[in-house]
């Protein structure tokens, strides 16, 4: 289990998360929802070690890893695909995959990446920044397949992509889940995320407002959080 417990975190003098606890069991899919600015990205940054929490703990399979650097967590099976495009734009596609493989055999890693997203096979020599947005995101996501992590944290991976590409990406996420990867989804396509999710957490202004299963969350409640219709 990847477990955030009583996390308070922020940047400088601004506190973004207050007492947030987020358990992610192995092999589960967790949807982390909330309006913009609710603290979803910050939660993922804490979970992958990019941001050290002010207080609270981070445990990975029973080991306390609070305050450890991201590469330590990555080596232990946490794969965070950050918001934006998680690629090195000035490196070739092949070099991107080589960096993802982190020392493992590059050839094998390239084969796995291409088997996940065949379109990457035709682009190996190209500069990653010159790919289309969808291809860039596929390249970023291929890391979750190449390195065989136990936990994959996905931050708005469908943002700004055409619907066809979004479908392909969700198909890939479904396959990852089937293979036993635990997923944490921060996703604006709420309906798609809920289809996959075993658990739902709802953040509002840095606090956990709801934790439960998708069935327990009704659409009205969700709209209220997103659209402020409670007036």
């Amino acid at each position: 289990m990847l477990r955030l417990h009583d996390i308070t975190a922020g940047y400088g003098d601004t506190t973004v998360l207050r007492d947030v606890s987020l358990p992610v069991p192995r092999r589960s899919v967790v949807a982390l929802l909330g309006a913009n600015g609710a603290g979803k990205t910050t939660t993922l940054r804490v979970a992958s070690g990019l941001l050290a929490p002010g207080s609270g703990t981070l445990h990975l399979d029973g080991t306390d890893l609070t305050g450890r650097r991201p590469h330590v967590l990555a080596r232990r099976g946490v794969c965070h695909v950050p918001e934006g495009r998680g690629i090195f734009p000035n490196l070739s596609v092949r070099d991107n995959i080589a960096v993802h493989a982190a020392g493992a055999d590059t050839g094998e890693a390239v084969d796995r990446a291409v088997s996940a997203f065949p379109v990457l096979g035709e682009k190996l020599g190209q500069q990653a920044g010159a790919l289309s947005g969808g291809q860039q995101q596929m390249l970023a996501l291929s890391r979750a397949y190449v390195t065989e992590p136990s936990y994959v944290l996905l931050d708005e991976v469908s943002m700004g992509l055409a619907p066809v590409v979004v479908d392909e990406i969700f198909e890939f996420l479904g396959r990852l889940a089937e293979q036993g990867c635990a997923l944490v989804l921060v996703e604006q396509y709420v309906a798609k995320a809920l289809e996959l999710a075993d658990y739902v957490f709802l953040l509002a202004r840095g606090r956990l407002e709801f934790a439960g299963e998708p069935g327990e969350l009704d659409a009205a409640q969700l709209m209220e959080k997103y659209m402020g219709t409670h007036t």
Binding site: L50, R69, P70, H71, C79, G86, N90, V99, A102
Partner: peptide, 12 residues
């Protein structure tokens, strides 16, 4: 290109 992302791939 991106030191944070490099960390996320498991390289210090």
């Amino acid at each position: 290109d991106d030191p944070d992302l490099l960390e996320l791939t498991g390289t210090s």
